[in-house]
Design a protein around this nucleic acid. Structure first.
Lengths: 334, 334
DNA sequence: ACCCTTGCGTATAACGATATAGTCGAGGCC
DNA sequence: GGCCTCGACTATATCGTTATACGCAAGGGT
């Protein structure tokens, strides 16, 4: 490896002069500067970022820590990357899927210190585990769990989005709406908050809430959704609408409906959540709650920058607004 | 930040003893060991990975560098991660999308040295740019471009997969098959290799090859595909099959076909490439070429480990086999 | 003539870990 | 008793950069 001192020797100057030429932290005379740059070019020198980090305490790198790389998180990551890069920093993704139940533990707090800041997506992490994380590293949390108050946090208006989608299907004539991927527990998490919105819409419309219409889905996957909805259909439980708690689940649902010869939206209306790309293109288009990824990304990055600039700033807890995108899988109000 | 020397002072030993306790590189007496561990616990010490890297030259981290985080690459990344972790290392994702035309330059060779090894996905990188990368860092290339012989490289059997998919639709009765996302150039890249397979299938069947059936798609996106196919339909060019060079494009195609009232597969057969999750669930199921992601991931990681263990090993160039997954978007042979 | 600034460069000490060579007492062997 | 080995622990140099203080000549103000 070619180091700064190699360059310094080649150019006949001290290492600090090389450093100053490259970082432009302090002025260097034109002839000296030229000789240094020539030496850099000739030797093919590249700065050692590790040494810089150790000494300068700065990596110019931000990590986004996600449970898995695909689908939802991949799309969000692509929104966040340009915003981080606009500030002259780099974004890298780390993943915790190995042990979803202990996101930080499996990652190791030590790794957090490799970065200037961390966006941590908390899907399965319990608040008390999070509370044990004692780090001064700037961290902004993303996700639908409750988190300790001292952390900055961006979450979605899950309940409101679910209410909008469900109410829309009720207005379109549905009276027996499944919540696919729902769960009966009361802990605040993505799935329970969205089920709560489904309930709210029912109550507001004066419709009964029936627990049999809450259908869990294994792994929140499309395959799990297809199987789960297939079983509901086979069971004979009557339904005329499906609120899928994610678009990935909606995709599994549309597959199961098609396999059973049920027409969307004529026999069954369908709505999802997340507004993934795919929802726009799967015929007849899946009505979905748009969580405004660009907006969430912008807020998260804004909070992180603020925290990096001022470690003592009071924590902010944002709830990003959502809106319903109506497509062919639901009917207009009757 | 609490350092090893804080721990050493607290435990009344030298820093090397702390290091030896934690790394288990050399034996430490039981009472001393206990005091050290107690001090680590009491102070909440976490090793500084940057300092370790600088001194020990090892990060236990592998990077996967991709053009973007979503869809195809996200799915591949989730396959690769467990394999890397199984060897006791960490996987992080870096992205180059900022300037697709200069993947390495935008990333900076310097960043490569932050990792023990790098899996570099070359989508838009020209061979001569790659040739300029002079690094001793273990690098394995993934992707469909030609690359300099000195690099390890894993690519797909693009032409063969395209040939299989096209031949299958010909056997099912199609005679005028579009290649959506195709390009007429002859440089080896994903899109041209797949177009070549489409041509081969036509020649083998004694069918004419018509350049008007090669339809480019903006950004290889679903939206671009929908627009492009919409224009073909509007133009009146007759066709009864679509070979989409990626599943993302196939998704746009199915949307355009539905919008025009064309039935799949009755009026138009459709096949894609990549076998993304979505293809399994979009009714009626999209026939697709399965590039065997797990196999590709396994080979890539195997090559990287080999290269990390032996920098002088001869470069391997692998072409991963593909197979056709037949679903409802195509007809059985007539 | 004197002092102070300014511009340009250098020498040296960190950052926090690990590698290497050493120290030191206890015990074994002849 | 003398010598050697061995286990347990320590002192110091080092990885490649940047922060800090300093040296030194040229120029400007009084």
């Amino acid at each position: 490896m070619v180091t700064m001192s190699d360059v310094a020797r080649e150019a006949g100057v001290s290492v600090m002069t090389v450093s100053n030429v490259l970082s432009e932290r302090r002025p260097v005379g034109a002839p000296t500067r030229a000789r240094v740059l020539a030496a850099v070019e000739a030797l093919g020198f590249e700065v050692n970022l590790t040494a810089r980090h150790l000494r300068a305490g700065r990596t110019d790198t931000v990590a986004l820590v996600v449970p898995s790389f695909h689908d939802y998180f991949g799309e969000v990551a692509d929104e966040i990357a340009p915003l981080v890069e606009a500030e002259g920093r780099h974004l890298v993704l780390e993943r915790t899927a190995a042990r979803p139940e202990q996101e930080i533990a499996s990652l190791g707090v030590a790794r957090l210190h490799l970065y200037d800041g961390v966006l941590l997506s908390v899907a399965a992490l319990e608040p008390e585990q999070l509370d044990r994380v004692r780090t001064t590293k700037p961290v902004v949390l993303l996700g639908e769990r409750d988190v300790p108050g001292r952390f900055d946090h961006v979450r979605l208006a899950n309940e409101e989005g679910a209410r909008l989608a469900t109410a829309h299907m009720i207005a379109g004539g549905s009276r027996r709406i499944l919540v696919l991927g729902g769960a009966l527990e009361t802990t605040h998490m993505m799935t329970t908050d969205r089920r709560a919105g489904w309930e709210t819409a029912h109550r507001e419309a004066g419709l009964p809430v029936d627990d049999r219409y809450v259908v869990p889905v294994a792994n929140y996957s499309s395959a799990g959704a297809r199987d789960a909805l297939g079983e509901v259909i086979a069971s004979g439980l009557p339904f005329d609408g499906v609120f899928a708690v994610t678009d990935v689940i909606a995709l599994g649902a549309i597959s199961a409906l098609a396999a059973s010869g049920l027409r969307v939206p004529d026999d069954v209306q369908l709505a999802g959540f997340d507004d993934l790309d795919v929802s726009n293109f799967v015929p007849p288009g899946i009505t979905s709650v748009d969580p405004n990824h660009p907006g969430v990304a912008r807020e998260a990055v804004r909070l992180l920058h603020r925290r990096m600039a001022d470690a003592g700033a009071p924590a902010e807890h944002l709830v990003a607004p959502v809106r319903l995108v109506v497509r062919g899988s639901t009917r207009a109000a009757r």
